[in-house]
Every structure is written in structure tokens, then in C-alpha cells.
Design a protein around this nucleic acid. Structure first.
Lengths: 338, 338
DNA sequence: ATAAGTAAGTTAAACGTTTAACTGATATTT
DNA sequence: AAATATCAGTTAAACGTTTAACTTACTTAT
């Protein structure tokens, strides 16, 4: 059943080295011999053993995909999509993707990811925020690292990022165009590079439009950008400032929370208050009204990260590049004229 | 940096065979030697090379996870969750999971999944409905197969299934307990084993409660269990029978559609009509009112499938078992008393 | 005619494990 | 006291590739 290189060699009447060289299209092998070998391969339905190859090449043919438990388990399939993207791209690059999650509470005693310990990967794509301690440890072993949707503090690795600043601007400009002036911003975990940048985009656009940036329009206290936090932030904001006519939430989860609060408080969306989110998660379409948001091409992010990884692997020491993946405004029904 | 068994042997002052045997806790090695070896292992931070192991054991340590493109890409992260479950369980079983999708239009000319071609997996978990032709081809190569959430036509493989009949009963009994008598059923693609069984559960519970099963309370025509179909089915049902006080939809997507129709027609949920779904997808919580449903433990389904696979792999030819994973009623706000 | 070069293979070592078969002590049985 | 069993380890082959170094037969240049 399972044929080896030996069987092919026998059938083709050549040595196993010739078969190997023929497979790799080595110039030392004549076209005719290559044909003979190819014929034998087809007849025997042979395909090389990965294990044997890996053993001698000291490569594994696998790329690790690392993220935190809560990112993978969270309701919105954000990182799942990114993972999917790496998987799609890996296919063309002849790689497999191995997934591993780590706790957010990673500490000194915790083990390294399984695929690192048993040397099952040639490189690691790290998605989203992961504990810096883990990054430290990982940077000590000699594996190529590529970050997607996160900027580690010691920034010497290739980065694949959402163009958050531009996205923040897009969202804000959309509201400005609709005639809004009192535009609130809801953030959570403002130290997170993505959220920080979206906030930058917000401020940039306001400045550009000549609108002064007002403190009581901005909520940055929430520690985490989740639904409930969006709800709480919206309440605080509205309590302090009745003039708000539009809210830009730093992500859809918070936008959804904010919408819940607004509905609970009897505000009509978008007649009384417009809401825009960021990410474009599936749930947005189910909302009433469906949420206007900034679409992040999640699958594309993952694919890009894998492309960078393959480059790094083939090209040994390529300069650590930084790729910004563009976003786009998706206008639905949650935003209207002021 | 990367230490091999040779280094460990040298450091411990024994042969490499001894190291290997010690690692596998072989009885021929004395406790004292084992300690020595362990010490050397720790000091060198050694861990065995998977490639080398795989080569000699002729195992890969990988399990394939196969499903169709559209199942993986569809909005509700149903199969994604199942995948996650296999991944979690794989961890304890020392396996890695390799994912591969196939088109629903798989035909004779299409290649087998990549991980089959290059012999990168020891077994395959197949999730959801996949083309029978592919199953045929796969059954010819000698890899263990485990199906999750699908029953292939030639049923000789281990199966991990949702307990759909019981779920159907749970849903129906919940409505009966609330005092409902005119309980409608909305199905789509009634030939699908899962939907068929949910319908069985419905009928069983009605019989048990002494309620006659009425044709104009049942909609089975819809070809596909999607939102729009739920909308259409609900309309037809209500048009034909104004006495309906409760609807059991065969899945959440159809339930969501039905709710939309009811709202559009001015019915209050649950005051006028109760609605219950099946699956418990994330969207349910966002609805107004949030949907009462039957929770399907998706992660658990995947974990169970992996457990079965590991059993099969360790135990060579275990009888093809069939595991029914239990479901539970999640009561939210879309069902009330008649 | 001889040396040098090239073309097309082949040989054999290496990759890092596992494991069957062997060895050489001790301990036990007869 | 000799034969046998047990214990604790070692030796060496095998797994299926890749690849540097070697071979052999032609070409071509001098």
C-alpha cells in the first residue's frame, strides 16, 4: 500500500538518490530519467514521507499559531477568522498550521507552548495580545516570530496590523459628514495598540474638521472592550453629556453594549443617537438596527501573516517589515444625520 | 542549543537506548538510572524529536479535521467550536490537529485532502455533511475515520452525534409544561438526520402528552434550514392556523426567521406566541427577546470525537461506537405560558 | 593523443529515534 | 557445584529521506 522511495527507485530502475533528485527537479538528472521516475511515482501513487524529510532537513513544515484562551473562546469569531486565513495561505505554501492557546495569566512557571517544546514548528504566528513574559521566553529560543494584530513592546519582529488609525478616521469622518459634532468615543483597554490607534484616528479627524476634542465625550476607563463595558461606558457618557448625537465605539462588542444601553434608556438609533463600531463581526447584521462599522479583513490578516512567515523562512533574515492591512467603511442603519 | 538523545546519554553516562527506555518508563531500567537520565534531560532541556519518533513509529501524531468550505465559513461558529473541542482534547492526547476543508462539489477528479496525500495524519475526524464520494475515496485508504454531527450512508464508522431526539423532546415538553397545546414545528431539509430526529422528538413528546399531531401545525417543505426559510414557514403556518400559541423551530436560524415574521405581523413574543429554537448560537442572546433554545455543546462534541479517535488509535479495532452527546434546555425570554 | 571538463548517475553517511536481540552480572534452583 | 533465571543494561538495525562525495562515460580543448 504505502510505497517508499525505494519502491519507486526499483520500479524506475534507478537509485533512490536519482529518485530524490528527480523529485526536486535537479539539473543533474536527464529529462528522460525524470519522466521515468515520474511514471513510477504515479503508478505507485507515491508521496514522500514527511517525517523522513523533516528528520533530515531539520524542518517540520509546520507553523504555530498562538493566541490567548479568551481570544479564541470569545463570542465574536475574530481570531478564528485570522486563523482561517493562515490556514488557507499555508496550503499554497506547503505548510500546516498548529494551533495553541495560552492563558492570559501566563507566568514564569508555566510551560512554553506544546509545539515549541517538542519542536514541532518552524515559526510562530502570534495573534492578538499575549503576555509579554511569554514573548520574552519565546524570543530566547531561536524561532522566527510574526505578530498579527498586536505590537509587542520590544518591536523587532515582522508585524501584520490593521490600519487602525485610518479606520478610526474613516469612522469619525463618516459621522462628521452626517453632520455630527458631539461625537463620543468609547474605548476599553486603551493601552492596547489597536484601540490606542483607533482613538488617534478619532482625534485626528476631529482636529482636521476643526472640532474641539472634549473630555466628557471620551470614555477610556473601561479595562476591557467587551459588551458589558460598552453598556457601562455609554451610560456614564450619556449621564454626563446629554448633547451627544453620535458614538464611535472602539469595537463592535462595545458598540453592541452601547446600543443596548441606548435602547434600554429609550433612545432611538439612529434618530436620536448614531452608533458606529469597528471590526465588522457577524452579529452586527442581527442587530436592530444593523450596525454601521469599519470592516477588518480578518481572513486577509491571517493570510498576510502567513505570507510574511513563509518569506522569513525562505529568505532567512529579511528585514522586520510592518504591513498595514486596509479597512473599509460598511454603512448600515445605525448611523444617520445629526 | 537543541539537544538530542545522544547528548542526554553522554551526560547521564549511559547508552542512548537506556535513555529511550528510561523516557518510556521501561521496567528494565532501574529507578536510580531513570533518575540520572531525568536529571540530564532537565539540565539539557531535552525533548525528543517528533520527526525521528514518527519516522520509526510510522505514526504522525496528527489528526486531520475535515469539513466543507461552507460549513467552515458560515456565519454561526458552529463547526469552528467543534474544531476547538478537538484541539483542546488533542492536547491531552499528545496529538496535533490539522485542518482541511473541501468543496461541497467534490468530484472524481478532485484530489484527496492534502494531509492524506502526504501521509501527515493518523486518522481523520469528519465534521458535518461532506460529499459521499469523498467518504468513499477516504474509506479505501486505510485511515481510521470518526464522524461528528453526520451519519454517512455506509455506516461502519464511529459516530459522535447530538442527541437530537431527546433535544426535540426537551423543547416540546418545555412548551407543553407552559400550557401550550397548539405547538407548531418548523423544519427544513427534513432528510438531514439531525432535523429528522428533532422532529421525531417533537412527535414523541406530543404523543406522550396525549396531544394529537396535527398536519397544519407542521411545516416540512422548506429545503434549507436558514433564516429566510423560517420566515416563510412561519407565515404559511400562521396563515393556515390562527390557534398556534407556540413554535418549535428545528434550529436557531429558522427560529430567528420565524421571530422576524411574527414581529412584522404584530405578534408579541412570548405573550402571543412562544418561540423555541435549537443549537444555541451566539446570536440568540442579541435577539429581542433573547431566544429560548436547546443548547448543543459544540466544544464537547469535538472533544468527544477526538477521544473516540484516540481510543481507536490506541486500541486498534474497537467496535464502531455511536455516542450521543446530551443537550440541555436554555430558557430565555422567547417562551412563556399559553 | 592526452588532459581537462562535463553530464548523469550512484554510494553511503547522516538525521534522531525505537526496539529486538544480545551480554554479562547476580541470584536462585536443583 | 552446575544449570538456570532474572536483572540492568548495551549494540546495532531500522525507519525514509537528503546530499556531499564519488564514479563512469563522453566531450572538448590543447
Amino acid at each position: 500500500m504505502k510505497s517508499t522511495i525505494k519502491d519507486v527507485a526499483q520500479k524506475a530502475g534507478v537509485s533512490i538518490a536519482t529518485v530524490s533528485l528527480a523529485i526536486h527537479d535537479h539539473k543533474r538528472i536527464s529529462p528522460e530519467t525524470k519522466r521515468k521516475v515520474q511514471k513510477a511515482i504515479n503508478e505507485l501513487n507515491y508521496s514522500p514521507s514527511k517525517s523522513a524529510r523533516n528528520l533530515v532537513s531539520k524542518k517540520t513544515g509546520n507553523i504555530g499559531f498562538l493566541l490567548t484562551d479568551d481570544h479564541f473562546l470569545r463570542t465574536e469569531p475574530f481570531y478564528t477568522r485570522i486563523f482561517l486565513g493562515t490556514e488557507f495561505e499555508a496550503r499554497t505554501g506547503e505548510y500546516y498550521v498548529l494551533l495553541n492557546t495560552v492563558g492570559t495569566d501566563y507566568d514564569e512557571c508555566d510551560k512554553l507552548p506544546r509545539f515549541v517544546l517538542d519542536k514541532s514548528v518552524d515559526g510562530i504566528i502570534i495573534a492578538g495580545k499575549v503576555p509579554e513574559l511569554l514573548i520574552d521566553k519565546l524570543s530566547r529560543i531561536n524561532l522566527p516570530l510574526v505578530f498579527v494584530d498586536y505590537i509587542p513592546s520590544k518591536n523587532k519582529y515582522p508585524l501584520v496590523l490593521i490600519d487602525n488609525i485610518h479606520g478610526g478616521s474613516l469612522a469619525t469622518e463618516h459621522l462628521i459628514e452626517k453632520g455630527h459634532k458631539n461625537i463620543a468615543f468609547i474605548g476599553g483597554d486603551i493601552n492596547h495598540p489597536s484601540i490606542h490607534d483607533r482613538f488617534q484616528g478619532y482625534k485626528l479627524s476631529l482636529e482636521k474638521a476643526g472640532i474641539t476634542i472634549t473630555d466628557n465625550l471620551i470614555s477610556l476607563e473601561e479595562p476591557y472592550p467587551a459588551r458589558q463595558n460598552g453598556y457601562d461606558a455609554a451610560r456614564r457618557l450619556i449621564d454626563n453629556n446629554k448633547d451627544i448625537t453620535a458614538i464611535f465605539a472602539c469595537n463592535d462588542a462595545m458598540a453592541i453594549g452601547a446600543m443596548h444601553f441606548l435602547k434600554d434608556s429609550g433612545y432611538k438609533i439612529p434618530q436620536d443617537i448614531s452608533v458606529i463600531g469597528f471590526d465588522d463581526v457577524e452579529a452586527d447584521l442581527l442587530l436592530d438596527p444593523p450596525l454601521t462599522t469599519i470592516r477588518v479583513p480578518k481572513v486577509e490578516l491571517g493570510a498576510e501573516a502567513m505570507r510574511v512567515m513563509v518569506d522569513v523562512l525562505n529568505n532567512d533574515n529579511i528585514a522586520a517589515k510592518k504591513i498595514l492591512v486596509p479597512v473599509e467603511l460598511i454603512e448600515r442603519k445605525s448611523t444617520g444625520t445629526a
